[in-house]
Design a protein around this nucleic acid. Structure first.
Lengths: 239, 239
DNA sequence: TGGTATTTGTCCGTATGTATC
DNA sequence: GGATACATACGGACAAATACC
């Protein structure tokens, strides 16, 4: 019976909210009550509640209590965003998926590449261009740059499956921090050639810088999504 | 000399990181060192650092330390996202801004409106259609629904300036939690009529449900952005 | 290889402040 | 004013990962 206490409390409360034990607009029992119920300290309980706040499940108000603001908005069938990978996304939504590798090469970072990737000059990288298919439809063009010293042994076959599973399984690397920027751009020749744009003359361009647990930026990726398959969710607090 | 201690430590560290006192890839001094420096408890310091992690400034690793991963990516001139309002955004970027109100009316929530806004049936709401201009260019079409009992006294003149300033100043209401969904859609007749689409045949549609500090969902808004003026940033951690 | 010190992660108990009712 | 509830802050204990000798 190990595991992190605040995580368990968080999961239990979240489950109870999703299952309407605590319903929309209702107050949770007070901190002191929950402290007794879970047999934990107030700090630990507050940590669990803090995570629920971050996830948009509850709102706290001093002197009043902790109110549930979670509403079930349906399936969230499409959900790019978070740190989910393409394969995880496809499987979660029971979609057939496939990845076609167009380019697989090794490069050395020069001045030009340095400026838009932020990789140090002279570093060796794998460069890939990939087309991602969902239910037979080409929906994403990926341009990936991985540091060779970190993604050592990457092959074309791996790139057709899941690079992240490989990094995680073989090299004990995993993405820890991702910084992303999203814009919408007019399509280019490659988009027109490879993607099923469904009448759109634009794509959603997600640019990511990804850091591993050692603080090394090891991935720079540009993903060009067909608009019809792109959805992003987010929640923010401000006080 | 009041103010919240962990916020001050957070601000101080953030400032030092932005000004390269602690530079990219460098470790911060250890928690114990910083505890002595700031004259605070370890919990308080850790809270400040936790917020820096959430903001993508640093990464922590047990047994090693706290590493700076902040890089100055330039101006971030455009930055929809966060909870910033249109007016705040315009002022921060030194852009001339103007809002034109196309429709200002009062409605009662019926079955149809209930289903996509999630407002309770029978509630009275203000309904607005507004066009937002930046440097003379129409860049956003806003469709707002505000609960009348909460945004009491809203007028067309206020809607031309800033509804949020009004809510904050006059009614002590302010947005606390916003849940948003972003998609890209083909333009409709209104977009074509009012927006300067610059060759795009799509708009970025941001749908928001906004809760005030009392946990009441008081605003439902659909914002249709011209693609050329839309940028969204985000950072995520995963362990 | 192994042991020790360092560093962050988890958890506890307590005290005090502040907002709400 | 008093009771209740969340917010901030302190200090201490032990665990787990890492670094160093």
């Amino acid at each position: 019976m190990s595991g992190i206490k605040y995580e368990k409390i968080y999961e239990d409360l979240k489950m109870k909210i999703e299952q309407n034990v605590y319903h929309y607009q209702q107050f949770l029992p007070s901190e002191n009550t929950l402290v007794k119920k879970y047999g934990c300290s107030r700090n630990t309980l507050r940590r669990a509640i803090g995570n629920l706040v971050d996830d948009g499940y509850v709102q706290t108000k001093q002197g009043k209590g902790v109110r549930v603001i979670y509403q079930d908005f349906g399936k969230n069938e499409y959900m790019f965003g978070e740190t989910e990978t393409f394969k995880e996304f496809a499987i979660r939504n029971h979609k057939k998926h496939r990845t076609e590798v167009i380019v697989f090469e090794e490069l050395v970072v020069d001045q030009n590449l340095h400026e838009h990737t932020r990789f140090p000059m002279g570093v060796e990288v794998y460069h890939l261009k990939r087309v991602r298919y969902l239910e037979g439809n080409p929906v994403i063009m990926d341009y990936n740059y991985f540091r060779k010293d970190i993604a050592k042994g990457l092959t074309l076959e791996i790139a057709e499956d899941s690079i992240y599973e490989f990094l995680d399984r073989e090299l004990d690397q995993r993405a820890v921090t991702a910084k992303r920027k999203m814009v919408v751009e007019r399509t280019n020749e490659m988009d027109d050639k490879y993607l099923n744009l469904d009448g759109f003359n634009s794509v959603v361009v997600v640019t990511s810088h990804v850091f591993n647990a050692n603080g090394v930026m090891f991935e720079y990726t540009i993903s060009r999504h067909t608009p019809s398959n792109f959805v992003f969710f987010d929640q923010t607090q401000r006080k």
